[in-house]
């Protein structure tokens, strides 16, 4: 099975470091996620220089596919069995709408903490698990994807009615 780490267009060194760490990689291997892909965005990654766009890194016996950006992550989400990502709302919507299990790791270094609000709301509603970087290995071990609450599909009805009413159309 494949796990995808993603930080979107941000820089989140701690999450990428965790993805390369022994406890997290061990936990992933144990749970059957042997295929590890890391979208690192603008993060600083060990031997990966800021100009490197993609590469392969071997850590603790695991080959990790690392790259910075792609025009669209749709195919990557489709191919993943688990996504571990930052708390960006775009990432959350894209992953949960596909019915993929998601562990959200809010970036504590962001000044504006509205992403943390989002992460905790998703966690409270049961649509995703929320973890800190330090607890990530444990969160992976504890993850039971069958207990995640399915995310509702897109429903344009409410907004369509709102605009129609505002513009004077009969419903």
């Amino acid at each position: 099975m494949r796990v995808l780490f993603t930080v979107g267009s941000t820089r989140f060194d701690a999450l990428v470091d965790a993805a390369f760490s022994q406890p997290v990689l061990d936990a992933l291997t144990q749970k059957g996620y042997s295929d590890v892909v890391v979208q690192c965005g603008n993060s600083q990654v060990g031997e990966f220089s800021p100009t490197d766009r993609e590469g392969n890194v071997r850590r603790h016996g695991v080959d990790i596919d690392v790259w910075r950006f792609k025009p669209s992550l749709d195919e990557e989400y489709d191919a993943a069995d688990l996504v571990i990502g930052h708390a960006g709302s775009g990432t959350i919507l894209d992953v949960l709408r596909r019915g993929k299990p998601l562990i959200i790791v809010p970036n504590p270094t962001l000044l504006d903490n509205h992403q943390e609000d989002m992460a905790h709301s998703m966690g409270k509603l049961g649509h995703a698990r929320v973890s800190t970087v330090n607890e990530l290995a444990q969160s992976v071990m504890d993850l039971d994807t069958s207990t995640l609450v399915p995310f509702p599909p897109f429903d344009g009805g409410n907004f369509r009615r709102l605009v129609d009413r505002e513009m004077g159309f009969e419903l």
């Binding site: 960006g88 709302s89 919507l93 509205h114 609000d117 989002m118 709301s121 709102l162 605009v163 505002e166």
Partner: peptide, 25 residues
Amino acid sequence: IYVETFARVRVLSLTGKLLRPIVDR
């Protein structure tokens, strides 16, 4: 019609704060 981004759970964005008094919805 202004729709605050899904990303804002508890606190309005700066744009939202500025526009709230002047938009129709």
